[in-house]
Design a protein around this nucleic acid. Structure first.
Lengths: 351, 351
DNA sequence: CCAGGATGAGAGAGCGCTCTCTCATGTCTC
DNA sequence: GAGACATGAGAGAGCGCTCTCTCATCCTGG
């Protein structure tokens, strides 16, 4: 069948003709307006089914200014996005919440300025009702400003760098998390405590190090700080560097579980036992943390909840007409546009 | 600023008024029609910039029947999608190709029938020009049929179960891949060769096993077949079961690299050396395969190319008006709607 | 039995754009 | 210098939908 034979999609008009009613009535039935006689509604429903009618989203959006669609933009390499369970959980949480609200979530993973630009044009073209932004880097990112400027509702996952924009966000309490990790290592008697940080152009990386540093105080050893990129590979490499520079390290805070797992590899290869020789604390509490060898002591963050809360916040701004039931588990009022979710230490065997 | 203060977005009309031209002329300039006087085009461009004008996608799509958007639907749990580099590469390939063609790619990861239904409504509402479908399971999936029925261009990644639909697809030569793996293990003198299969409700899982089985012929040992789910965890568990049932196994074909890596874990923990005691061949050639310990012998599939080819195929059906340069690296003519990409054995140290 | 209010269906405008047609210029040729 | 032809800009219809008005019909109560 040649492409030219593509059948014309049925319109409201067609359904109306078939059901013997007006366009307006079909619209009412399709949108669930209650003021339609049951018999007529049934006739319309039948016609809809027979024709396989599907409302044209463009036409609807054009007049109603709503698309019932939200965008999730992760400005990150797809290798990172796909390699890190963190994203999986955020996506899960936001999809759950979007579905519950009857919204569709679409994902964008722009990798370079060109793709970022394309994504921006897309969301600015009115194709979505609001935007979730995650994995923000400090390098100048025009997206949040441009969207806010354009009047598009935005919620950021993590702490925004430019607070002056006044943008809503949902963060994890990364500073406290860093503190908890440091405290645990001190409490179990470690003295030469190093850390593999996250990227220092991301708020999560910065804040976790900040908490770690301030908790350690005098005991903080700048020479035991190595930088990672949140990935397992980077954690392994960082741990190797650390071991080479400071073989006497006896405690290690990895700012992500993936990096902690990488550190495990490096430590094992170097013949160090965990936790006997080096105690390790991670961050995230991803699924495999519990089944790692040894099971990883880590700081748990509520990533699914973060995703849900982000969508809630976004919905409140993008669709104030919708009345949503309160989301359980939030630390503050649901309307608070600056949410910081609590973290907790999960003690297993690695520290 | 209350949400109600959201400024009205500028329309073509506004730009036209500001530039002192007609709506049609602004449309021409915005769409790059060459028949516009340079001076006038400059004036329009200026007005566009001053107003921050962004064409309304809905309005455009309504009349032009094009959205310049493609959907990629991965019917898979987000844990699987995010845990497997395979998806990352497919996404990379399709995004690259979509960008090159000036199209936007949006991702969907429906996890349950409800989300699948929502995604279907979305793509059937005219919000996209075409759909890429990956990670299809044999369990009855109404999506391909429904989309084809609705006249929406579809391309499937992998071998479709229902060939009667005549849908275009891009597959990897999984049968040959299974053969290559088996042949390698035989050639290096292995006699008791087991396999960890992929899911048997997915064509990739079925076909790799089929190739492996037919190559082995008489030497195929049904008792050395264990099933996995393509994940590292499932590979580890499957290898443990295999070792428990058949401690004398000396060769192993894992139908994905992730499962091979899981098998490595199980083998190490069981005190087996790779490749001395058990030779292992994987499938995919994901990035970490080369840096695994030992480096993994595997069957390389061209996943990025697959993603690119899928978009090409889709564009040919969704946008026949666009003339795209040929895509290098394809085994057949670019117009062939049933593409099977070649695979190759990459010999490293594990087998 | 009829005014007055519900109730429920239709008419029609218009969302922001594209694209065909039409028409006013400017340019050339003989 | 007049006719033929490009060239480039405007007019206007209409894409498929929503939503406000308007109006026909039915049920009340006095």
């Amino acid at each position: 069948m040649p492409a030219s034979a593509r059948p014309k999609r049925p319109s409201l008009e067609d359904v109306a003709a078939r059901a013997g009613v007006s366009r307006a009535t079909v619209s009412r039935v399709v949108n669930g307006t209650p003021t339609v006689d049951a018999a007529i509604a049934a006739r319309v429903d039948q016609a809809v089914r027979e024709l396989g009618y599907q409302p044209n989203l463009s036409a609807r959006a054009l007049v109603s200014k709503r698309t019932d669609t939200l965008a999730l933009v992760a400005s990150e390499s797809d290798a990172r996005v796909f390699g890190d369970p963190f994203f999986s959980r955020i996506v899960r949480g936001s999809t759950l919440e979007a579905s519950a609200a009857g919204m569709q979530l679409v994902l964008f993973m722009p990798q370079d300025p060109d793709e970022l630009d394309r994504a921006e044009r897309y969301v600015r073209s009115g194709a979505v009702d609001g935007v979730l932004l995650i994995s923000q880097h400090e390098t100048y990112d025009p997206l949040p400003g441009a969207l806010i400027q354009a009047g598009i509702p935005v919620v950021i996952g993590g702490r925004p760098f430019d607070e002056s924009l006044g943008v809503a966000y949902v963060d994890n309490d990364n500073v406290t998390g860093g503190r908890l990790a440091a405290r645990r290592l001190v409490e179990i008697g470690r003295r030469r405590i190093g850390t593999i940080t996250g990227p220092q152009d991301m708020s999560a990386g910065i804040d976790r190090l900040e908490g770690f540093r301030s908790e350690l105080g005098e005991a903080f050893r700048p020479d035991l700080v190595v930088h990672g990129e949140f990935t397992q590979q980077s954690g392994m490499e960082a741990a190797r560097r650390l071991l080479a520079d400071a073989p006497d390290v006896d405690g290690l805070f990895a700012a992500s579980d993936l990096m902690a797992l990488g550190a495990f590899q490096a430590l094992h290869q170097a013949g160090r036992r965990v936790p006997e020789d080096v105690a390790v604390v991670g961050f995230d509490d991803i699924q495999v943390a519990a089944s790692a060898f040894p099971p990883l002591t880590t700081v748990r963050q509520q990533t699914v909840l973060q995703g849900r809360a982000m969508v809630r916040l976004l919905m409140a701004r993008a669709r104030p007409d919708l009345e949503l039931p309160p989301l359980p588990g939030l630390p503050g009022p649901a309307s608070d546009p600056h949410l910081v979710l609590p973290v907790e230490l999960v003690v297993r065997e690695s520290a």
